Simulated scan of single mutants.
Amino acid sequence: MQQLTSLSSQRGASATSIALLLIVIVVAGKLLIAIVPAQIGDYQLTKTLSAQLEEANNSNESAKNFVERVNRQLSINADYDTSAEEVFTFTNKKAGQLAIHKKYEKTKNFFGNVDIVSRFEGDIKQGDAKSSAKK
């Protein structure tokens, strides 16, 4: 009878590898919970800005009216912590040719003092409003 004492003959997972796997799963899940909502929020905000930009340009609204329109829409969407002035700046303020540059960031707590900062930036022009929003 031969006794198997080498590590290569071990079958199954050790307690250490199971603990490490659980840690990896928890960290990955926490990352997903922190990042995915910010990405979805940015997609929805970009769609809203694109639609509002198209409507404003079609009705030859001024930049001031566009900002009021966006703030009103954000309020309707229950996005009370976001204002138009914090999210974008104008790259073209001519009525009927409005174009904006979206630039903002969202901060989400990860663990303890560690935060995840998601930065979103992109140009939105009249042509972009008809197609999908770009990041």
Rank of each mutant, 00 (worst) to 15 (best):
S62H: 08
A28T: 10
S9C: 06
K125Q: 07
F120R: 11
K103N: 13
L32M: 10
H101E: 14
G112H: 08
K108R: 15
E85N: 10
A28S: 10
L31D: 02
F66L: 05
V87T: 15
G112N: 14
I23K: 02
L7D: 01
A19G: 02
E86K: 15
N57G: 08
K134T: 09
A38C: 13
V117S: 04
A133M: 03
G112K: 12
F110L: 15
E121N: 12
R11V: 13
E85Y: 04
S118M: 13
E85C: 00
Q3E: 06
A78C: 00
L98V: 04
L98Q: 06
S118L: 13
G112E: 12
I76S: 09
G122E: 06
V24F: 14
Q10H: 01
N58F: 11
D42T: 09
A15P: 00
K103L: 08
L21D: 01
K103T: 10
K125C: 01
L7G: 00
K94W: 00
R69W: 03
D128T: 07
S118E: 07
I18Y: 10
A84P: 07
S118D: 05
S9E: 12
N92P: 03
N77R: 13
S62L: 12
K102H: 07
A28M: 10
L49W: 01
T107Y: 05
I33M: 15
G112Y: 11
F110S: 10
Q2N: 08
S131R: 09
R72A: 11
N113G: 07
V70F: 06
Q126G: 05
A34V: 11
E68G: 14
R72S: 11
T46D: 01
L4F: 11
L32W: 02
S83V: 14
K94F: 01
T16N: 10
N65S: 15
N92A: 04
I25F: 14
E85S: 13
H101G: 03
L53G: 07
N60E: 06
S14D: 08
F111K: 04
K103I: 04
S9Q: 13
R119Q: 09
S17Y: 03
F90W: 06
E54V: 07
A63I: 01
S75N: 12
I33C: 09
S14Y: 04
Q73C: 01
I76A: 11
R72C: 00
D42H: 14
F120T: 13
I124P: 01
S75I: 03
E85R: 11
N71K: 07
K64V: 14
Q3L: 10
G112I: 09
